[in-house]
Amino acid sequence: MIDLFKEHRKNFQEKLIEKMAVYYYRYTRYHTNYSVVICYVAEAIDLSIIKTHIRKSDEFFKLNNHLYAFVLDSTDDAQGIKTANNILSIIQPQYFSKHLYMAVVTASNYTDTFQTIHDLFDLIEYALHHNINNSVIDSTQPVLHEG
Rank of each mutant, 00 (worst) to 15 (best):
D3Y: 15
L4P: 00
K6R: 14
K6F: 11
E7L: 06
H8C: 09
K10F: 05
N11A: 11
F12N: 07
Q13W: 01
Q13M: 15
Q13T: 01
L16I: 08
I17T: 05
E18T: 14
K19Q: 14
M20D: 12
Y23F: 04
Y24N: 13
Y24L: 09
Y25M: 07
Y25C: 02
Y27G: 00
Y27N: 03
T28G: 01
T28K: 15
T28V: 08
Y30C: 01
Y30S: 11
H31R: 12
H31I: 00
H31A: 03
T32Y: 11
Y34T: 00
V36Q: 09
V36S: 05
V37E: 06
C39I: 08
Y40S: 09
Y40C: 02
Y40Q: 05
A42Q: 13
A44D: 05
I45V: 08
I45N: 02
D46L: 07
S48M: 02
S48C: 07
I50M: 00
T52S: 15
T52P: 00
T52Y: 12
K56Y: 07
S57C: 10
D58G: 02
E59R: 14
E59D: 05
F61C: 12
F61Q: 11
K62P: 07
K62R: 09
L63S: 04
N64L: 10
N65A: 12
N65H: 14
H66I: 12
L67V: 14
Y68F: 11
Y68M: 03
F70M: 06
F70R: 03
F70L: 03
V71S: 11
V71T: 13
L72F: 06
D73R: 00
S74L: 08
D76F: 01
D76A: 02
Q79V: 10
Q79N: 09
G80H: 03
G80Q: 03
K82C: 06
T83H: 10
T83A: 05
N86Q: 13
I87N: 00
I87E: 02
I91G: 04
Q92N: 12
P93E: 04
P93Q: 10
Y95D: 01
H99Y: 09
H99W: 10
L100Y: 01
Y101I: 09
Y101G: 02
V105W: 00
T106Y: 00
T106E: 01
A107T: 03
S108W: 05
Y110H: 02
Y110W: 03
T111G: 14
T111E: 14
D112E: 13
D112T: 07
D112S: 07
T113A: 13
Q115A: 09
I117Y: 07
H118W: 08
H118Y: 12
H118D: 15
D119A: 04
L120A: 04
D122I: 11
E125Q: 05
E125T: 08
Y126E: 05
A127R: 07
A127G: 06
L128K: 02
H129C: 10
H130F: 14
N131K: 08
N131A: 09
I132C: 15
I132L: 15
I132R: 15
N133P: 06
N133Y: 10
N134Q: 01
S135I: 14
V136N: 14
V136G: 06
Q141L: 13
Q141H: 12
H145L: 08
E146D: 06
E146N: 10
